[in-house]
Write a protein that binds this DNA or RNA. Structure first.
Lengths: 260, 260
DNA sequence: CGGCGGCTTGATTCGAGTCAAGAACCGTGG
DNA sequence: CCACGGTTCTTGACTCGAATCAAGCCGCCG
């Protein structure tokens, strides 16, 4: 299940730095300032909720280890996963800005996780001193929106095989952004089903299909991408929606408005 | 096809005001300031593109009359509609902030439309004087994101009937926000198909189904909702994701960050 | 009048869901 | 070390909703 989870401690903080870098934050000082705010550090075991549905956020939560998902309970007992969260991601950034439709969304751990929390009051103070940091957080929100939009495109259209391939591509790409390579995706088939809206059975058949074609390794019991190129081809994946660097120029424009 | 298109002129500007109000903008002065920036006014006939796929935006475009859609060309020749745009909506607000994935998105007129344009340079200057206005535009972006997220939930899940009903509910609600009542939705069946990802045939059968149950009026040749309550019930529609007022409190929090 | 584009309708095919049962794995405790 | 129960993964048989294909129909405009 791991390859992600290391001993929680000094080493575990890295992903946040990586994330901030990927958001275009240059200064080392700013990054360290944010890190310093992460006080309480909590372990959450797989299946537990990290953020409950209707809690008012007094602090920001950041994922340090493991994989979590933002999901919504459905009437039928199932759940729709809206987004996956990887180490370095902020769990409830969206919730501050966008109280969810029916208030039924929550964040849960898909693997054993470690999360850190940051008091809002302290965050605000730090943001005033380092405006670059606020910008980075805003970009994080934008990135989430971008991913969300891409899901819409992917989920509604095309055959199931393509959907799954696309999702795997996204996860692979996002893992690499935070420095985790190797192509192992430690997520259960049921979780994939909840994310795509497909049935677990169908997910299984698709994975086997991909294994037979050599795209995934035969290693059952884990999803391991062995032929990346084919996967990208099957998915019709274009990762540009994940690349912040390319988007920065545009954002500068918008900043003149609300920000200053 | 109409009920929307009036003589373009003084009267046509109203929707923008309505929109700004719905975004929580209080001051009359600010609203007028924005209106004053709308210089060039252009008619676009149905089927034409309002915003091409890969144009760099030197000005902001606002829809004054008619219905447009933000869409993406698909490989197979079809298109996926990401969002409908109604009078008062800004066509390319999203494009400033989020250059779209493959750069293949564009905005096209679904009915005959009138659009106004605002130079970015002038907009920026006005925003500096009226920060309330910038806030309203930011909220508009958030609203779009909220709608987009709700589509994800709706499109991937549930039977086709529910999807269509939900979409009709959304349109109905958004029409009313800008002061257009009467329950007529002047959109072709093919457009509905492109928005939901269903086939045109299926859309047709569903509409007939709804007509037989008395939810839509028998008036073929147009979609006219006669039993709103049933429609909402079928759709499982909860319009709260469209109501900005309820969301304002949360946003105030976020403002302390990037904005000041 | 004669096209043409949007709507309607039926027949057929196919992908994906559901149900149901079996197999591989994991942690636990004897 | 092995037996046990729970969870996840696999596999097959059946069903059903929606896509596709293929005509026919209406109203509009030249």
């Amino acid at each position: 299940m791991t390859g992600l989870a290391g001993p929680s401690g000094v080493h575990a903080v890295h992903p946040v730095i990586w994330k901030l870098r990927s958001l275009g934050l240059q200064g080392e000082a700013e990054a360290q300032a944010l890190l310093a705010l992460i006080k309480r550090q909590v372990d959450v075991s797989r299946g537990q909720e990290i953020i409950a549905a209707s809690t008012s956020p007094t602090h920001l939560t950041v994922l340090l280890e493991g994989i979590a998902c933002l999901y919504e309970k459905l009437e039928g007992g199932g759940r729709q996963i809206h987004a996956f969260q990887l180490p370095g991601d902020f769990c409830d950034l969206g919730r501050e800005v966008l109280p969810e439709p029916s208030g039924t969304v929550a964040v849960a751990a898909l693997t054993d996780c470690t999360v850190g929390t940051i008091r809002h009051s302290e965050l605000d103070r730090t943001l005033e001193q380092h405006s670059e940091l606020g910008l980075a957080l805003w970009r994080a929100t934008m990135l989430e929106a971008s991913i969300s939009r891409e899901w819409l495109h992917n989920v509604s259209r095309g055959p199931a095989l393509q959907q799954v391939a696309h999702l795997l591509c996204e996860l692979l790409a996002r893992f690499e952004v935070i420095g985790i390579h190797g192509g192992v995706i430690p997520i259960g088939q049921i979780d994939l089903a909840d994310a795509t809206g497909l049935s677990a059975v169908q997910i299984n058949r698709i994975l086997q299909n991909l294994r037979k074609s050599g795209v995934l390794s035969d290693n059952a019991r884990a999803i391991e991408v062995s032929d990346r190129k084919s996967l990208v081809h099957i998915a019709g994946f274009d990762g540009s929606y994940l690349e912040i660097a390319a988007l920065l120029a545009q954002w500068q424009v918008q900043l003149k408005g609300p920000a200053n």
